[in-house]
Amino acid sequence: MKKNKLSEGLVEILLRISAGASVLAIIIITVFIFYKGIPLIAKVGIIDFLFNLKWVPTNGSFGIGAMVIGSLAVTFCSLVWSVPLGIMTAILMAEIAPPKLADVLARFVELLAGIPSVVYGFFGLIVIVPFIRNHLGGVGLSVLAGAIVLGIMILPTIINISRDAILAIPKEYKENSLALGATHYQSIFRVILPAASSGIITAIVLGLGRAIGETMAVLMVTGNAAVLPDSLLAPVRTMTSNIVLEMGYAAGDHQAALFATGTVLFIFIVILNLAVSISMKAGTENGN
């Protein structure tokens, strides 16, 4: 009996340790990323590091301004087309399409989410880049190519979360609206979408986070020139691409600058995620 109690206690301790593993992981990740990145940011100065456009690491000039703007430009352009397309698909799946067809679409979206980013990058490099080069001009490796590939990659995030948000709206909302004489579409646009708006915003914010952090696919199609892009057809380098491209040979301050870029990304993503989970918590409390 005593032995039994002992092993029960031991199991609970083991389970507690495994639960603690992820907390430990995030602490170590934070410590090591900061430890490698913060000193260089302090040395260069945060303003200079983030906004200086001159990235000449061999010459001691560590400004990631061009890459920050590159990341933002590619991300923004990808959201411009994938957000409307994703939300419309989500509405179609939740409200309009027959359930069987909606399930088939859901499987398609799942497959899109499962395709690895290198495969997207490869497809972009082989199909989208030459298409842009031949039909729109420039070298093809461009902001536009990055925006197309990234947009495809974040569609599943936008569709799935928006669809869940729409499906979570109580049926009575729509029934009441229809009973008052509104058409199906009036109910969708005036009642359901406003009620689902916080979930849809979450979908967009998480899609944005995914787009900012995406690396390989973007790296393969954007040409990676570390200068400000002057048009949609110009090449561009993102913060994430910069890390992969130069990590192989960087040393000393140069390597620290790449970690500092990682630190900036890390802080940005953590803030986005915390904002989402806190606002979702507030949302559910309001809902009750």
Binding site: F32, G213, T215, T240, M247, L258, I269, V270
Partner: peptide
């Protein structure tokens, strides 16, 4: 779940 894979790579 939200941390980009490149940051995991750096870590």
């Amino acid at each position: 779940a939200g941390i980009p894979s490149i940051v995991y790579g750096l870590f």
